[in-house]
Computed example of a mutant assay.
Amino acid sequence: MIRTPDRETVVVFRGHPMKAEMVHELLKGHEIISFINNELMGSIAPWQVSAGGFQPVEIVINKKDELKAISLIEEFQSAT
């Protein structure tokens, strides 16, 4: 398979499950398709998906939306 920017994915956020859900909704509100990795296991057994249970949940998006998403996430984090 040929990797093109519209087929590549990138992790734009790692953190607590509740905060990841807020970021997911923020991105969805700005028409950026995102997926949450480790949502369930990050909630019940975070130490099994990341070392020490630190930042167990990831938000994954399409590479082409990376700059817009990072800008939105930085704005969100500075406001919270």
Rank of each mutant, 00 (worst) to 15 (best):
M1T: 12
M1Y: 09
I2G: 02
R3I: 12
P5G: 08
E8Y: 01
E8D: 13
V10E: 07
V10L: 03
V11T: 14
F13A: 07
F13Q: 01
F13G: 03
R14M: 12
G15V: 09
G15D: 03
H16C: 10
M18Y: 14
K19C: 10
A20V: 01
E21N: 14
M22E: 15
V23H: 04
H24A: 10
L26P: 15
L26W: 10
L26I: 08
L27E: 08
K28S: 12
G29W: 11
E31F: 12
E31P: 00
E31C: 04
I32T: 02
I32H: 02
I33P: 00
I33C: 03
I33H: 10
S34V: 04
F35P: 00
F35T: 14
I36D: 01
N37F: 11
M41P: 00
G42C: 03
S43I: 00
S43P: 00
I44W: 07
A45K: 15
A45N: 13
A45C: 10
P46Q: 04
W47M: 04
Q48S: 15
S50V: 02
A51W: 05
A51E: 13
G52V: 09
F54T: 11
F54Y: 14
Q55P: 00
Q55H: 11
E58Y: 01
E58R: 13
E58H: 06
I59Y: 02
V60K: 08
V60G: 01
I61N: 03
N62E: 12
D65L: 08
E66P: 01
K68S: 06
I70G: 02
L72F: 04
E74I: 02
E74C: 09
Q77C: 08
S78H: 10
A79W: 00
